[in-house]
C-alpha cells in the first residue's frame, strides 16, 4: 500500500497524473484547509481585541506625551 498510489516507479510517466498522497480526498482536505484559514481569523481577532483592550487600559497622559515626542 502506498499513500501516493504507486509502490514503485516501474511506470511510463506519460500515463501518470497526480502523485500526491490521499488522492480522492481533495474536497475534505480543502474543507480542513478552509477551516484552518477561517479559524486563524477568529483566533487572531480575539487575541487582537484582548491586546487592544489591555493597551487602552494602560494609557497615561505622560506615556502619550512621551510617545508623541519620540516620533
Amino acid at each position: 500500500m502506498s499513500t501516493i498510489g504507486y509502490e514503485n516507479w516501474a511506470v511510463d510517466l506519460a500515463d501518470v497524473g497526480a502523485i500526491y498522497p490521499m488522492q480522492g480526498w481533495e474536497v475534505p482536505m480543502t474543507i480542513i484547509g478552509v477551516l484552518f484559514w477561517l479559524g486563524w481569523h477568529v483566533v487572531q481577532f480575539r487575541s487582537e481585541s484582548r491586546e487592544l483592550a489591555e493597551a487602552e487600559k494602560n494609557i497615561s497622559a505622560e506615556g502619550v506625551k512621551k510617545a508623541i515626542d519620540r516620533y
Partner: peptide, 9 residues
C-alpha cells in the same frame, strides 16, 4: 504521510 511511496526509481 508518504508511507509506502517509492523512495527511489
Amino acid at each position: 504521510v508518504l508511507w509506502g511511496a517509492p523512495s527511489s526509481p
